[in-house]
């Protein structure tokens, strides 16, 4: 009996977005991840390594070590992650957090501009995570980064209005964050696009969990979103951002240096971060924000292999 290869006839595809001054393309898939026999994956999944605008308070030693000479100097740190092979730089404006330095919008915008001017890869700018404060600082950052076509986030139901208006005006893309619910995700994408920012300038962040810490929820949301995108739901067809490093390095399996029954931390932590990333890649993730340079290298090697037809 001959095998008639089953090819699904998908009617639509993931939106293709362009980031950065040189126009890095992401998204645009017309099939499920890596199913090269039935559709196109015109752009490979991309990585970013995180850069903090102040020395991170809660990073384990293993994670600080590769950046020991640049912690506290975001410009030097950003150049370093580019040298280490990240496709993009993800600058986190932690200093704006009211619990830390409570830095002003003008201060963080200055840092963002200095970082953007020092690199040629696209810049992702992430606020401090306090919705109200991000609603104040990110519009100012957007203005300072005019022309850089940055990816700015995270925008939530509570603060999307001011940030969307600024991103639209100054030509940036947005990360829309909603907690593990496909309908909330659609809803926020619609709210943002109704303010005039086209859907192909939005990437959605389903607030992923790490391996062992709820990874299956985001895994299934990404699979459902991709199926939605391929069958014509434009509000689910935005590329997916995965905050892998932030979650993986909260796991004790990654950050605990001394648990003999789990084996040595160096390989264990890298596998924790990278397995979290590869799992989302096969579910439909597009942008992977990582923390350790070795994870970036390992993940990219996995993508090289998976992209082969």
């Amino acid at each position: 009996m001959a095998v008639n290869i089953i090819k699904e006839r998908w009617t639509s595809k993931v939106a293709e977005s362009t980031l950065g001054p040189d126009g890095l393309k992401i998204g645009g898939e017309s099939t499920l991840p890596f199913m090269h026999f039935e559709g196109e994956m015109p752009n490979r999944p991309v990585t970013a390594l995180e850069v903090f605008d102040m020395e991170p308070a809660d990073w384990p030693e293993m994670l600080k070590a590769p950046y020991a000479d640049v912690l506290g100097d975001p410009v030097a740190w950003a150049k370093k992650v580019v040298d280490l092979g990240a496709d993009m730089v993800a600058l986190r404006l932690m200093s704006a957090h009211p619990d830390w330095k409570n830095a002003s919008a003008e201060e963080v915008a200055k840092t963002a501009k200095a970082v953007a001017d020092a690199i040629s890869v696209p810049l992702i700018v992430i606020g401090c995570g306090v919705e109200e404060k991000d609603g104040e600082i990110l519009p100012v950052v957007a203005e300072a980064l005019e022309g850089k076509k940055a990816l700015i986030g995270c925008v939530t139901q509570a603060n999307y209005k001011s940030i969307t208006a600024a991103a639209n005006g100054y030509g940036h893309n947005l990360i829309a964050s909603t907690p593990l619910d496909i309908n909330l995700c659609k809803q926020l994408n619609i709210l943002i696009s109704e303010m005039g920012l086209p859907l192909d300038r939005i990437a959605f962040d389903p607030l992923v969990g790490a391996l062992g810490y709820g990874i299956e929820y985001a895994y299934s949301i990404m699979e459902r979103a991709r199926l939605g995108a391929l069958t014509g739901d434009k509000t689910l067809a935005t590329p997916v951002v995965c905050f892998v490093g932030q979650e993986a390095w909260k796991a004790k399996e990654a950050k605990d240096p001394d648990v003999p029954e789990w084996g040595p931390q160096d390989e264990r932590a890298i596998l924790w971060e990278t397995t979290t990333a590869t799992t989302f890649a096969i579910a439909g993730g597009t942008i992977f924000i990582l923390r350790h340079p070795e994870s970036n290298k390992r993940f990219k090697a996995f993508i090289d292999e998976s992209m082969k037809a």
Binding site: L211, E216, E253, E267
Partner: peptide, 12 residues
């Protein structure tokens, strides 16, 4: 360190 991630993902 190589097996724990696989078993964890399987569980998930």
């Amino acid at each position: 360190q190589h097996i724990l991630p696989i078993l964890t993902l399987r569980l998930n």
